[in-house]
Computed example of a mutant assay.
Amino acid sequence: MTAPIRVLVCDDQVLVRTGLVTIIDAQPDLEVVGECEDGQAAVDLAGRLRPEVVVMDVRMPVLDGIEATRLLAGAGVPHPVKVLVVTTFNLDKYVYEALRAGASGFLLKEAPPSQLLHGIRTVATGAALLDPEVTRRLVGTYVARIRPAEDTSRDIPLTPRELEVLRLIADGFSNSEIAAALQISPETVKTFVSRILTKLDLRDRVQAVVYAYRQGLVT
């Protein structure tokens, strides 16, 4: 048997944190190795406990989830940790900044436990987790900030088909939805996604979404 995925839970609300820990620890393939109530503690604990995934709130005392994410998963971090942001969309206006800081995805706190567990397993594999509907709403809110005018004139080194796939990724489509929309196989979609990330030197689908909006490929 493979070792369980090591998870660190960071949330300043005791009841929420306890609920997350209980849900995660009940799974045989997941193990909560630590919990804390602020971003600085998450950074410190991650250095000692070496979790594979940090489930991170955004609004917290001492150090918020955005800065903690940047320290744990941002560009230049020697041993980055996968960060899954779990937040309340209607109250939290900083989710985009968290994704830009290096988070691998996000979920709403009202999501069912099955989505949380799926999210942890997904980001642990190195994939990104983007809820399609929430992605469209969230990124749409920040279009003006995501797409600086000076970035839109850059050449995009993608084929027409790759551009088509990138636009659908930015619209929050899953691989299966892209396959259905373009009438190609899911395996072909995976190949296109891999090529896009490689050509654009992007880490994951989250960065692909940001790139697409910056380049004005979607509005």
Rank of each mutant, 00 (worst) to 15 (best):
E35P: 06
C36G: 03
A26W: 00
G34L: 01
Q27N: 10
A42M: 05
V33A: 03
R48N: 15
D25E: 13
G39F: 03
G47M: 12
A68H: 00
D57C: 05
M56Q: 08
D64I: 02
V33K: 02
D44R: 13
A46L: 11
P51W: 07
A46I: 10
T69P: 04
D29M: 01
G65V: 10
Q40V: 02
M60A: 09
R59G: 06
L63K: 14
V33D: 08
G47R: 14
D44P: 06
V58A: 10
L49G: 09
V43T: 06
V55Q: 12
M56G: 08
E52Y: 12
E67G: 08
V53R: 04
V32W: 02
L63I: 07
Q40Y: 14
E35L: 08
V43W: 01
P28S: 14
D25M: 01
L49S: 12
V58D: 10
P51L: 13
V43Y: 02
V58E: 04
A42L: 05
G47D: 10
M56E: 06
A68C: 02
E31A: 15
E67Q: 15
Q40W: 13
L30E: 01
G65T: 08
D38K: 07
V62H: 14
P51E: 12
P28T: 07
L49Q: 12
R59F: 12
A41T: 08
V32R: 08
V33E: 09
D38F: 03
C36Y: 05
V43S: 06
V62D: 07
Q40L: 15
A46F: 07
Q40F: 10
V43K: 05
A46D: 12
